[in-house]
Amino acid sequence: MLKVEELTKRFHKKTILSDLSFNIDHGEIVGLVGENGAGKSTLLQILATTMKPTSGDILLDDLNYQRDKAKIRKEIGFVPQDIAVWEQLTVEENMVFFEKLSWKKKSNVQLKEICQDMKLDRWKDPVKKLSGGMKRKLNLAISLIHDPSLLLLDEPTVGIDLKSRKEIGAYLRKQATDYNKTIIYTSHDMDEIKELCDRVITIGEDSFYKNLLQEADKEVISF
């Protein structure tokens, strides 16, 4: 379980996040929405351990974010908004490259399976020849090489076609259901959030997102 207690983040005198508290269970997909500048990316970076909170506690199962940072990082799969892959390498070479630097050893067959599971089958093709949707899938596949228990995705489907978006959504649902992974997902696409997420966290004073989500049968946590 991911447990966030009274989390606050200030930049100089400006408070970006104020007293956030929530729990997320294993196997749950939680959406994170809010207008630009509301603090979604800041929260995601704090949960990814790449930014320190001003105050508050975060626990991932028995691991404390302040004390056990190195262990927690092994459990995190971070999918950045920008496509963080080597364009000049093939899909296979990208997977092998990041596997070599990963905490867990995987064979080429296992790496190929990860890609095939999300319908990324152009194994030998250079990334620069792939479509935006394929690149997004690879971006996600690389983050899953070390079998993380907490998956943090920063707008992973931005700018791609509906088919690829559905395929990525289906894959994430399978990861949550079959492999009990905790998934936090930011997006501006409310249809996608409504369809995919079990619960939604809204950040910011604007009630626009809260009103949109009222129609859906989703639990909404607002800050």
Partner: peptide, 8 residues
């Protein structure tokens, strides 16, 4: 951009 992966 791949540099963002190194913390993990």
């Amino acid at each position: 951009i791949v540099a963002v992966r190194f913390p993990f």
